[in-house]
Design a protein around this nucleic acid. Structure first.
Lengths: 205, 205
DNA sequence: CGGCCGGTGGTCAAATTTGACTACCTGAGG
DNA sequence: CCTCAGGTAGTCAAATTTGACCACCGGCCG
């Protein structure tokens, strides 16, 4: 359930067929390096791995148009498409995953039909509320107990979760009000560029 | 800059000397499995690795008090202590790290003198505010631009960051009001248990 | 024309994480 | 007394991530 696979599958799917560098460039353009530490190396690894697992097919391709070593193009398979949607749904549904996974899911949100996206997000909110109640229950100091500064951890998580729930509710409202073009409503990616230039790799922090 | 190393170093430090299972039990008791996916395997790896790097020294020890294979105890070195504080400071200072790293930092907050902790947290808030301004600047839609649903990613991050900043400010206030016993003020860990029992490993999700 | 800078496309080793698995001992129940 | 559940302590292979590095090409500057 990693963000990497979702991002890479999503990028390849967008083009139908893509080589590693193109995926890399897209992710860079989408600002993925800002919120999801996906390094260049992981992309090539993920492509190879997923090809081995039948989620993609690899095509060897001649030395390329613009200098550099020969490149390999990858194409989605039916299995890859299924896995993509499985990951996408998990990303939106689960509240107990790393935030970069959710973020990647949001990036591909419009690949789902509107009703399903809303349903998944509502499931998310519900799970967060349950979780919140469970934490409060478990950590409410009983007689003579004192969690000391450890209580701060709980506060931090409750605070973070509350913010996440708020954002989710707002997104649901926007979707229900008809925001964005979703799957089955035309081309969701119209107007949203993929990538004009290449990535910028220098000075990786 | 991983949460694992900070957690493991912190746990060993707490006991002065500890074997892998003890660290594992502590983390479990602290609820670390709830917020920081640190798996048992990683703990043993981290211990060995850090021993190899001179942050810990390994002592071979006889078959143990309570059944099971012989265990290895690890002890902090001066270098380990320095690394611990380096990680701890980074955890509190950086706003651009994964949340489990921050959480681990909070767990060990009281190992720092009060003034330093407050200073680090203030640095954190400052950095978040700058970051926020930069994002808003960069993503304010110009003439004819439309980020479409990609704007949701930015909203999510701004929202999350805002919640983090709020929590941080509140924590600073509590610290300035004298909450908790910090380094140099007595025993910060008085009353806060380490671990009474063992970890529970079944049904790992 | 020579050199070199930056973009292109990728490989590689090392570190880390993950999840399953092993092996031992103790105590309770039959 | 036997067995079996469960706690104790850790290993291992496979997957993944990280960060450094390589090789090639086009164009620009002097």
């Amino acid at each position: 359930m990693s963000a990497t696979r979702l991002l890479v599958l999503g990028a390849v799917r967008r083009h139908g067929r893509a080589h590693g560098y193109q995926v890399r460039a897209d992710l860079e353009y989408w600002g993925a390096h800002e919120w999801s530490s996906v390094k260049a190396g992981s992309i090539y690894h993920a492509l190879k791995q997923m090809a081995k697992q039948g989620l993609l097919v690899a095509h060897e391709v001649a030395p390329s148009t613009a200098g550099g070593p020969p490149r390999t193009e990858y194409e989605m398979t039916a299995a890859g498409d299924a896995e993509y949607f499985r990951l996408l749904r998990e990303a939106l549904r689960r509240h107990d995953e790393k935030i970069d996974f959710l973020t990647a899911g949001v990036g591909f949100l419009v690949d789902l039909p509107r009703a399903e996206a809303v349903a998944l997000l509502k499931e998310r909110v519900g799970a967060m509320e349950e979780w919140r109640a469970a934490v409060l229950q478990h950590y409410s100091p009983q007689e003579g107990e004192d969690y000391g500064h450890i209580g701060e951890i709980m506060r931090l998580w409750l605070h973070t979760a509350e913010a996440g729930a708020e954002w989710t509710r707002a997104l649901i409202a926007r979707l229900e009000a008809g925001a964005y073009v979703m799957a089955g409503e035309g081309d969701p990616w119209a107007g949203v560029e993929t990538s004009p230039g290449g990535p910028d790799d220098r000075n990786p922090s």
